[in-house]
Structure formats: C-alpha cells, structure tokens
Design a binder for these strands. Sequence first.
DNA 1: GTCCGGTGTGTAAGCGCTTCCATTGATCAT
DNA 2: ATGATCAATGGAAGCGCTTACACACCGGAC
Lengths: 341, 341
Amino acid sequence: MSTDERAAFRSPTLDTVAAAAGVSRATVSRVVNNSAKVSADVRELVDATITRLGYVPNRTARSLAKRRTDSVALVLREADATVLADPYLAAMIIATSRSLVGTGVQLVLVNARDDPEHGTLADYVRGGHVDGVLLASMHADDPLPRILVEARVPTVVGGRPERPVPGLAYVDCDNVGGGRLAAEHLVGTGRRRIASIAGPPDMTAAADRLTGYHRGLAHAGLPIGPIAFGDFTRVSGERAMTELLERAPDLDAVFAANDLMAVGALRVLRAAGRRVPEDVAVVGYDDVELASLTEPALSSVHQPVSEQADTMTELLLRQIGGAAPGDPVLLPVELVRRDSS
Amino acid sequence: MSTDERAAFRSPTLDTVAAAAGVSRATVSRVVNNSAKVSADVRELVDATITRLGYVPNRTARSLAKRRTDSVALVLREADATVLADPYLAAMIIATSRSLVGTGVQLVLVNARDDPEHGTLADYVRGGHVDGVLLASMHADDPLPRILVEARVPTVVGGRPERPVPGLAYVDCDNVGGGRLAAEHLVGTGRRRIASIAGPPDMTAAADRLTGYHRGLAHAGLPIGPIAFGDFTRVSGERAMTELLERAPDLDAVFAANDLMAVGALRVLRAAGRRVPEDVAVVGYDDVELASLTEPALSSVHQPVSEQADTMTELLLRQIGGAAPGDPVLLPVELVRRDSS
DNA sequence: GTCCGGTGTGTAAGCGCTTCCATTGATCAT
DNA sequence: ATGATCAATGGAAGCGCTTACACACCGGAC
C-alpha cells in the first residue's frame, strides 16, 4: 500500500465527528479534552459519536495548536558503541521509559551521533519536536547543556556537569560518597595496600569516585595507593589490573570505578594466581546485574538508577510546566557487600 | 521561566524569514526543502537570512502539513520489569537507535505498559505521532500486530509471530537452526545425555529453539533428554537446573534457551559439585556480553542483533515509503564456542 | 509580431486542532 | 417587566508549514 492509498483511509477528524453529532468542532474539542462546561447530554452524545466513528485525535495537530508536544528527548552523548553497551546506560533508558508511564509523555531516544556538528541537536530540540531534554552520560567538555539552557529549553542532566552551568538542573548519585564508602569498607576489613582502577578523568562520575576514595583513605590515615586509569570497559579493566600488579605486587585490595572494569580485574587476578578475596579484595561500582553473577560475586556500590530516572523526569516535567530548574539533587548510594571483599 | 515567558522568545517562523528576505513564504519553504526551482541568487539570499535570524523549521507544523512525522515507534511488549532487564532487549534498543542514525527518522520508545487496555497503543499510533511501528519481544497471543496491519500502519515485527498474519513483515533469527546447532555441537563433542532448559513456550523464539534442538538430537539418533522450562531469567534457570539434576542425575550436557538461564545453570552445577565442562557441558543462547565473562566462559549461539535491527528498520522505512510489506526475513545464527562445552 | 513552452515566484487553500470571543437563552434580583 | 449574570455553544482566527495552481516573464520558433 502506498502512502497515497493509505491516505484514502484517512481517519475521521474533529469535523467529521462534529458533523455527525450535529455540534460544532469546538464542542467536540471540549469533550475530548474534558474541559470546561459541556452539558451532560451533549457530552454523552459526542462521546457516543466518537466511539461509533472510531475517532482518535491527531496528536500532531494538537501539538501545533497547543505549542506542546508531550514528549521529551533522552539524549545519549556517547558516540562510541562500546560505551553504549554499558549496562548502566541501558538501565537508565529502561528506567526513564518506565518513569514516564502514565504521564502521557512520550520518550524520544536521540543518539548523540545524530549530531555531527554541535548545534544540530540543539536545533532539533528547538524545532519543537520535544518539550524538554534529558541528558545522560555526558562528558566534561560537552557544550550542549549550556546551549540548551541558553535556548531556554527545559533540561535535566543525569550526573554532575564538569563546570556549573547557572540554571541547569541535574540529578547525580553521590559518587564522592560512594568512593569513600568503598575505601572505608576495604580499610575496615583490614586492607592496607589498596589500589584503584579509575574511570576516564573527563567524566565527572569517575573523577568524583576517585576523590571519595582518596578521602576515605586519607581519613583512615593511609597513603594513597597506585592508580591506573581505564575507560569503563572490561578490557581496560584487565589492562589496568595488569599494570597495577606490576607496579604494586603486594597490593591487597582494588577499588574499580565500575563493575565492568572490576570484572576485568577479577580475571587478571585469577590468572595471576591471586585468590579473591583472600589475597586481594575487590570492590566494583554500579552494582549491575553482572556483579552478582561473577565468581566470586562482586561487592559493589549500588546506585539508585530508577530513583535517578524518576527524579530526572519529575524535575523535567515540572520545568516544562513552568517551574524554575531548581537545585541539583544528590542521591545516596550504598555498598552491597558480596564475596569479593 | 514559565511556558508563557518562553513563548515570548518564540523563534522566527517562515513568515519572519520571508518578510526579512523580501520573498514569499512559499519560496522560503522551497529553499528550506531545497526543492524545485529556485534561482541561485534568491536561494543565497534566503539562506543568509535564515542563518542571520537563526531560523529553524518547526517539525510539528511540517508534520501536520505533510502528514508525516519522520519518526517511528519501538514498542516493547513486556509488562514485566524483570524481563525488561534482558540484555538482548537492551541491545535491540541500542541497535535500533543506531540503525536510524542518518535517516532523519526519530525513535520513540513505547513501553507496553502504556497500554493498559488493548487498543490504546493502536490509537496512539493511529493518532499520527509516528509513521510506523517496530515491535519487539512479542508474546504469542498478542493481538497488536493484527490490529496494526488492519489499521494499515506500517509495521515490522522482530521475531516470528505465533500465527502468520497476512501482510505482516517480520525479521527473525534462525532459532530452529540455532537450537539444532547447539544440539549438534554437544553431540559432536561426545555428549549423549543432553538435557535442556527451555524458554516460555508462549514465545516463538523459545519454542523454535526447542524444536531445533529436538531435530538435532533426532538427526543424531539420540533420544530426547529431559526438559525443564524457565522464563528467561537467571533465577528460573537455577530452578530448572536443580530440577533437571534431580530428574536426570547422569546428564552430561545442558542446552539453555538463553544466556541468563545458562548462567543460573552454571551456578547450580558448581554448587552441585559438577565440573563444567568436564562433567557437564553447557551451551547458552543469545551470546550477550555476559557469556564471555562467566567462569568458565559460556559457549552460546550468537544472534546478529545489529543486523536484525538494521533489517527491521530498513523494511519499515521501505514500507513507510509505500512499498509492500514483503516477505519475512530469516537471519542466520552461529555457535560461539567457549570453555563451557 | 504572435504564440508557445519553460522558469521562477506568489497566492491561497489546506493539514487537524485549540481557544478567544461573541451569541444565545435561561435564571435571578430588582 | 427589565437589565444583569451566567452557563452552554458556535464562529472564526490562528498554530507554522506545504503545495497545487495561477501568474508573469522570458527567449525562441513560426
């Protein structure tokens, strides 16, 4: 069937219904939006006509008239497919989708790669296809948040932006607290030569976790152990662990800035003949499902992903409704202790 | 900033540009769509005006006028959050998003739970907010595909529908072939008492894998081993494996209909003191990243998820363009052999 | 010089809906 | 009775864009 043919099956419009019910378009519109004063009998008549004709309002037309699309964009700022495989991000997508259920707001998934040159994405948003933007997984140098704020597009960022942007709302998990939690836990179980596999320094989440970890050690009066950097992939975790073992063969614990890298560490440790947790304790971050499936099961800092998504959408919808962006929100994390530490 | 205030910042429209450039709206429109004949100098003038004014076309208005939204829905038919955690589904979402990059078509993620009563979703689609629908993870009794086809909404299903629906396009991975591949592999490595953890019988993918597995055994002249059913979650895999060990303590191989359940089986086997692969060989299905991370690493049937997503979007876009739905597509799978078999 | 076929541009009629404003009867106090 | 008030409805003007159609203008064929 061609587009033309399909057009022949055009569904009834407000006019059709109005004519069939013998009332004006305006009245039908009022009924559909259950707005204002419509007498009970007219309402009933119109409702009946609507179901009889199988009328369903055209969202596009409505959007145009109301200047409101009732949909928001979830923008993923990851060009790299590898990083997109991150289960945390996947969880974020699902959670966001779920938190929108029942609000009548639709979720448009926008892949960052739609945006070869900066500005295109901003234009898209300004094009009026969405009422607001949820920004996930940003990198430090990303100009997008500022652009959006300046274009007065309601925006909420997941995670702390590198530099504060006035009027930019964001919802972060307490990465500093999480890093500290991990350090304190390891110290508390008697570890003294604690190494760390950090994430990419250009991501604030990674930097904050490292900061917290440092603080935890400092607070316990311990020196800062060796640090190797990864990019949140398993392979980079393996590389980092190998490096750490060379630089500090006597380490007795490792804190990895995410679970994928922790899993990599686990493998390298096993290959090197170190027992976990007897010889080396390992703590990961994110608490993705994978963490409970490894052998030994991985201790990890749990992030409230659903809550983060819920908060983000709530802030966004409120902003779309006209409220001020409001203050940043920091969500608490907790350590889930399993067998690896 | 309230909605009203924001409205005050209304961006320039076609009219604004037309007035500023001293031409008609139609001409500006032609330039924007680089359509038809516009003289070089006028085009240049208009282009300049557009950038000067920072004009960006309003997609909603365009959609209304063209009866075309340039966006498609990806509908997830899973009410249950647990199943939504399936990495295969996550991969599907990402892959679909990626395959749309560069087409100018947007992806709207629709959670099935938006659809408490059947019909709502169909209405949504007919509401003209999307040009077509991608259906993922359907269950056998789902009336949606038929409804969509009858409403003449371009639709492509991922996976084989239980009952053939005339005029319904779908893209499936060769589940029968995959099941058979797994069986043949296990037989080929000398296993003789092969058990199976099957998926929910109301999902065609699960049923087909089981069928293929049966055929593989039959072809080798082996009797069909014990079968336990799970629901594609890890926990159900554990339960199933426990049951199988009771019913057939002498089994020497297990084929699980997905990786999550295979991981569950792995744990139960270890707990039961069976060595993998020495005592019991295990093969999973899906080849999600997790499969390469278990200990021992899991052999698994690999599905071409990206290719499936690509094919689906391609078929859909073609259909939206006016082409007939076309024949179902069956994508080949392959066995990835790792340490568990 | 007239007629023809292009070309480039403008005019205006939508696309399907919302919403302001005016209109019409009632209802009520005076 | 008379005007004021109010609820219910209709009329009509948009929302910002596309696109058939008409029109003017041009060069060339006759």
